[in-house]
Design a protein around this nucleic acid. Sequence first.
DNA 1: CAATCAAATATATTCGATAAAACCAGCTCT
DNA 2: AGAGCTGGTTTTATCGAATATATTTGATTG
Lengths: 234, 234
Amino acid sequence: MGKTATEAGAAKSANRISTQASTVYDRLQDDILTGQLKPDRKLRLKELIEIYDTGNSPLREALNRLSANGLVVREENRGFRVPSANTEELLELTRTRCWMEEIALRKSIASGDIAWEERIVLAFHWLTRAAQSNEAADRYTSPEWEEHHREFHMALISACNSSFLIDFCTQLQKRTLRYRNLAEVVAYRDRHELEEHRELQQAVLNRDTDLAVDLLTKHYTITSEIVLSSGRFD
Amino acid sequence: MGKTATEAGAAKSANRISTQASTVYDRLQDDILTGQLKPDRKLRLKELIEIYDTGNSPLREALNRLSANGLVVREENRGFRVPSANTEELLELTRTRCWMEEIALRKSIASGDIAWEERIVLAFHWLTRAAQSNEAADRYTSPEWEEHHREFHMALISACNSSFLIDFCTQLQKRTLRYRNLAEVVAYRDRHELEEHRELQQAVLNRDTDLAVDLLTKHYTITSEIVLSSGRFD
DNA sequence: CAATCAAATATATTCGATAAAACCAGCTCT
DNA sequence: AGAGCTGGTTTTATCGAATATATTTGATTG
């Protein structure tokens, strides 16, 4: 795909990492999480091959990986589809997420060092900037804000001493994000996201564990309620 | 495998579910968990095609699924291999598992109903039987005992009201099991597995949450220590 | 002798075609 | 009318071959 000679040279010495399967994996995941691909949508191989301009095998490999992550559902001999979305699952997700992140946060606060504190401070800084630099309208829905938001929350639990737990939290984060995007909540109006995050950051840095956990839990619970109030799920 | 005509007929009308990819997925997972496929072993496509008597595509699909589950590692353009095993990971696994199952057990005890109690009682019954019906030598290593053991522990947390949490616990269980099998611990000698499980069951049925959690945590920690004491990991 | 490079080989990835299974009418028979 | 069959159509799963990428080998040079 139109590489210049220089690029080709650099790529050779550096690394030619991406395989086609991984590329389409990323794109599919993105389209499912952003809601481009709607719940229950049948994922016909032929269509997807068109859409993502790829071949049978890499596409199927991507779908298989996603299915193992619960981001697509696979039914033997009848292909793949986007997982359905319903109130019950969102509640279960949120519940579980609160449990998981509570532990992760407690352990993080208990054993986080200076580097961990710095990660949090920095992440919060960028989150603040992202919130300010966007139009009021889509302040909390821009991809950049989304990314910084994710980073901030990940920073909080990054010192929990369990890559497994971090991985679980990441999975839950993704699946929750899908609901956020599906709800297309434009109305975060009377919510003070930035303040919530600031308080949370304060509590964490002060090592006020119980308060921090409480704030975090409320943060997730409220979001879930807002998403549900969009009334888009059965 | 020796189906009667009736069974075959039933299967036809009922469902012919299994695809080749899923079959090889199961076999691969089994061989990795039992330690037939050793840590760090390179999984060359050609070899595996021979071994499992299958084709390129289903094999790759199986490997892709497993890689998403962390049961094989995938490196772009250089194929697949069995994840390495080391002390640090086992410790992390055990730690995380204790955290996860603690929550799951607490929630289960808090909201478990009669049916849940019955599941536990039954599972324990079969566990007992399995322990008795085998030779002393491999009492705790036979596939049946293994299966009943798994069932028992799953029963305990089955009322936690989170399929996600249950799934996480299952993942951790599998990865821990691999270490158990790799260690080839013949010597459970002075351990009274059955008694440990009985006490645990009692505490749970009595809804003595703190005691139950304590017993469960110790159960996993001790197992981990025994496995480590085999001295097979770096 | 160590480092470098290019062919030669091995291996992984992807493609295009085929086989197998599900789906969907329209039809039959009660 | 409705359960069950039947043939044609669509879709999925698999195969075998082609391509791209990594790894090894072995000769060459500083």
